[in-house]
């Protein structure tokens, strides 16, 4: 008989479950309420993510939420996006903590504290980007900015892919 998960693990799974839902429903604050089927889809993926924090369901649910944000609020730069980012980062950090060991493993206070700080630190990038984007929004667009941006994204992807290929070879 496998040991039952403790209260800490249950809280982590709850955060993993609620994070994507909060991020999805945050568009409702600016008038774009998601359809019921979309809420059900995200809820189902979030449940699977909470049950298996190491699975690709986490990536899938976040991509769905991002797609909804891109489609529902065309050309919208609302501060509510920071709330959605907080939901996604919370789910991600909770999943990291949950994937450190079996579902019944008790949480170490120092590890939780470290990841709370890390989560808060990376989340700061979200309001910072929002502020920069808001300031630059009405500025004239330099020629070739999107091409440069695309090239930067391509290079970043390439670096990540190469890194993955080298994975396992110290």
């Amino acid at each position: 008989m496998s040991p039952r998960p403790g209260a800490g693990q249950l809280v982590l799974r709850l955060l993993v479950l609620l994070g994507p839902l909060v991020a999805l429903l945050a568009t409702g604050l600016v008038g774009a309420v998601p359809a019921d089927w979309l809420i059900a889809l995200v809820a189902a993926l979030a449940v699977a993510f909470a049950a298996m924090p190491d699975s690709p369901f986490g990536t899938a649910v976040m991509v769905v939420v991002l797609a909804w944000w891109g489609i529902s609020l065309r050309d919208g730069l609302h501060p509510e996006a920071v709330i959605a980012a907080a939901g996604l980062v919370t789910a991600h950090v909770a999943a990291v903590l949950a994937s450190y060991g079996p579902g019944s493993m008790p949480l170490d206070r120092a590890v939780v504290g470290l990841w709370a700080v890390r989560g808060a630190a990376v989340l700061l990038a979200s309001p910072a980007v929002w502020a920069v984007a808001t300031v630059l929004r009405d500025q004239p667009e330099p020629p070739g900015i999107w091409v440069a941006g695309l090239a930067a994204a391509f290079v970043a992807t390439l670096v990540a892919a190469v890194s993955f290929q080298l994975d396992g070879r110290p």
């Binding site: 939420v65 891109g70 996006a81 920071v82 980012a85 996604l88 980062v89 991600h92 979200s126 980007v129």
Partner: peptide, 11 residues
């Protein structure tokens, strides 16, 4: 859609 960068910058 700059809002997507706001959402994904932490990741």
């Amino acid at each position: 859609e700059p809002v997507l960068v706001v959402l994904t910058a932490p990741f």
